[in-house]
């Protein structure tokens, strides 16, 4: 009696474990329906061991809220990507949100011109972190066919950081889906474009360096107004 009491409390639960695992992996009926692939991947352990940030990245990539944001021609193809036949929802990126405050991903679908860039920057700033940008079409890469225009920003990268560029004029829906899938992969791996100072930033008017143009506009623009200054000569 006493010798038994001195022994450490040991149970041989291998049998139980094996039985449970077998039931989970090969079990029949209702269980099978829920457990198949995931169980196989995780093996017998009842725990999923991962780093929390990795888990969060996987979650982010698997449930992306897109911003409903149409600019130009590409937005028509973007609509097609969201709706029947292509159905971006299948890739966990389906529900376009009208408010930037509810969105994780902004697809920039079209040419950005001087009047619109400050507004786009504002919309981007309103999105909660972490946020991601898909540049759709040639215009967001370089200005595309309108690159030589007097009013055209030479790519979205001049204003906001872009994670994925999808080339094309416009890209086919398949191409956009591929771009979104690539973005998911990047997010799952925890990558995103660094946030750096861009050539065109919103700044207060009185913070601008004084020069001829600023002096000329001083009467028209309030000192505290936010402005975006385009130095076209330095554009790529």
């Amino acid at each position: 009696m006493s010798s038994e009491r001195d022994k450490p409390f040991v149970t041989d639960d291998t049998q139980v474990q094996t039985a449970t695992r077998d039931a989970r992996m090969t079990g029949s009926g209702a269980d099978n329906r829920f457990n198949s692939k995931l169980r196989e991947a995780f093996g017998s352990s009842p725990f999923i061991l991962t780093k929390f940030d990795q888990f969060m990245n996987w979650v982010r990539g698997s449930s992306m809220f897109m911003l409903q944001f149409g600019i130009a021609c590409c937005s028509i193809e973007m609509m097609h990507t969201y709706s029947v036949k292509h159905d971006l929802d299948r890739f966990a990126a389906g529900v376009p949100r009208a408010s930037p405050r509810q969105a994780d991903v902004i697809i920039v679908p079209g040419t950005i011109v001087s009047k619109f860039a400050p507004r786009m920057k504002r919309v981007y700033d309103q999105m909660p972190e972490p946020k991601f940008v898909v540049g759709m079409g040639s215009c967001t890469i370089s200005g595309g066919p309108f690159q030589e225009g007097y009013n055209v920003i030479k790519g979205a990268e001049e204003v906001i950081p872009v994670d994925i560029h999808v080339p094309g004029c416009p890209p086919r829906p398949e191409a956009l889906i591929y771009g979104v899938a690539k973005l998911q992969q990047r997010i799952a791996e925890g990558e995103s474009s660094p946030v750096t100072v861009k050539p065109y930033e919103l700044e207060q008017f009185d913070d601008l360096e004084r020069d001829e143009v600023v002096d000329k506009l001083a009467e028209q623009i309030d000192e505290e107004d936010l402005v975006m200054r385009y130095n076209w000569a330095d554009s790529p």
Partner: peptide
């Protein structure tokens, strides 16, 4: 002159 800088407001 297409290269002259321009300023656009967001007010």
């Amino acid at each position: 002159d297409q290269d002259r800088p321009q300023i656009v407001t967001l007010s």
